[in-house]
Design a protein around this nucleic acid. Structure first.
Lengths: 333, 333
DNA sequence: ACGCGCTGTGCACGTTTGTGCAATGCAGTT
DNA sequence: AACTGCATTGCACAAACGTGCACAGCGCGT
């Protein structure tokens, strides 16, 4: 007979309800399904359980990152669009195929899913990942697949408070999801998105609690953000959500701002000197952002194209994930 | 309207029968299926084709290595069996889960499939992969998944001729399949498995045509082999296939041989000095084999356990892929 | 022009897979 | 012991999927 210790690598012996079985069975099932091409029925027989349980074990295996599915386009024959974008803008492009017939919210959803799956493999142990907030990142955060890492940290890139709410629940939900997916510590940045007075920012930036976050940001190994865009149809969250008053919006216009990344603004040519609002923004200095090894920009929807152009001109991203429609718009002009 | 040039990254425009579409559609389909979780029906609509075609595109994407599915067991909580084997024998173990109720030939098949999928990701560009022959490798070769590589070479580890046939079709089929899967050059080793006289081997080993192969073997980055085993129930191919005569088998017994790798023999303790048959064998010197960075041993069936123990004692493998039954037998000693 | 073989397509069918639901088991509480 | 709340299971049904088959388009040789 087998002892319990033996039993725990064993699916064929007697039925064994030791706790922790589930994840072991999930691994066995995943191997049999994905590596041996058995049907769920056959697996159920070997595991002495029902087919439906196997189905559930497999979804669990996928969700917890036990199974990783990646689609590589052998770079030698990558789709033309991706190559063109790479050449022209010096970023690694991931174009999300989407027929132009689908509506904007579905495009966002699908870009978000694919972005989440693309980001997954890039998160290593000991990583310090900066994460912005906004509708794009919120969508992405809903689709992250888990991956076990050690000692990684998710750090908030910019404050999220505004004049109406502290914005904390919204932003912190995003962060929390990232942290949970990668088993990482989460470091929130409990400041408003914009200070009313630049002097307050200067003062706060001397506080040790704040410096701790800024220090983490300086040591980021990866940053993930969307872009905000001015000018085109729908304004982003930042431009309509109560973060900026009429006067602020006017100064943006005067400064010829076309968009922002993590509430730091820039112009169409990528410059950001002397944009007054940036002195009150809590986002990371763009020059400093550019020193981060991997900077992933997620964009969905053609309305963001102006902001995106500026961000690319500023060299803010090393990787760009965007829907096919926007990609085409980007290169065709 | 779109021009044809636009059309070729486009699935939504008019129906477009440009050649090469298939692999592009396969990529699009794979992204939509595996990264965006659409159903095949939805994909068919966007690609303007039928669901069945999408199904076929997806199988193509999997077969050609466009999609790679890997199952990782986060090493911190790897199954106990694998950890035990790793510790005791100093190899990375991949245990293939198989209920003990399934018959030997199915076990072989399933080990082969999983081995093929495990090997795939390890083959890089510029690799020189040594491949042995035998029933195990034959089974593996049938299940390799394609993967695009540049300038890699598959080299035969040991001659395959015997007194009855040249053995070439059998061995070369295996090699050919490896070559095709990885887009690699194939270098056969057109010599018998064993020379009748050691002197012939010495002479042949000076021939430039042979030296070219030996040189490749010296520069191998990876070797893949099974084990032969003496003593247990069913003897391996080598021991029964007309490669050795009665006298040879007697000398093996005298020399206390327990098994072989690529027709080079060894004893239970892993030693191989003064085994006379090795002087006539065309397999690689075992000491030299041990200098190869990655040495993958595939074993299926408990009858091979004696040979396997010897091979492990000799330190011939860095990676071991074997079925669960054998694995258990191995650690329970 | 015609026929031939080849490749790729959609249909139809049987198989495989996902999931709402009710039943069961188990732990903690009254 | 009885009760309650939560997690897990198998069932049954519907959705999604794979594949043999017949047919259409195309290139090629006669």
């Amino acid at each position: 007979m087998m002892t319990i210790e033996d039993g725990w690598t064993d699916g064929a012996g007697g039925v064994d309800r030791t706790p922790g079985n589930r994840s072991r069975d999930a691994l066995r099932a995943a191997q049999m399904y994905y590596l041996q091409d058995l049907t769920m029925n056959a697996i159920a027989r070997e595991l002495r359980t029902s087919r439906s349980t196997v189905s559930r074990l497999l979804s669990m295996a996928r969700e917890t990152g036990l199974v990783q599915i990646q689609v590589n386009n052998p770079s030698d024959r990558a789709p033309a669009l991706e190559q063109q974008i790479s050449r022209r803008f010096g970023v690694e492009a991931h174009v999300v195929p989407v027929a132009d017939s689908v509506n904007d919210s579905e495009v966002l959803d699908r870009v978000a899913i694919q972005a989440a799956r693309t980001i997954g493999p890039l998160v290593d142990s000991n990583a310090i990942v900066g994460v912005a907030w906004g509708s794009t990142l919120s969508a992405v955060s809903h689709h992250l697949t888990r991956k076990q890492t050690h000692d990684s940290t998710i750090v908030q890139l910019n404050g999220a408070g505004n004049t109406q709410t502290t914005g904390i629940t919204y932003a912190s939900e995003i962060l929390r999801r990232f942290g949970q997916a990668y088993g990482a510590r989460v470091e929130q940045f409990p400041v408003p998105a914009f200070f009313d007075h630049a002097a307050t920012k200067t003062a706060m930036w001397e506080e040790r609690s704040v410096r701790r976050i800024l220090d983490l940001q300086r040591r980021m190994t990866m940053a993930i953000f969307g872009v905000g865009s001015i000018g085109a149809g729908i304004p982003s969250h930042v431009y309509s959500g109560g973060y900026l008053d009429r006067e602020d919006l006017e100064t943006l216009e005067t400064d010829e701002v076309v968009g922002d990344v993590a509430t730091m603004f820039f112009r169409a040519d990528g410059t950001h000197r002397d944009i007054v609002l940036n002195t009150r923004s809590t986002g990371p200095e763009l020059d400093q952002l550019c020193t981060v090894r991997r900077r992933i920009c997620v964009v969905s929807g053609e309305s963001k194209i102006n902001g995106l152009r500026g961000a690319l001109a500023a060299g803010l991203a090393t990787d760009l994930i965007l829907d096919e429609g926007s990609a085409r718009r980007l290169v065709h002009s």
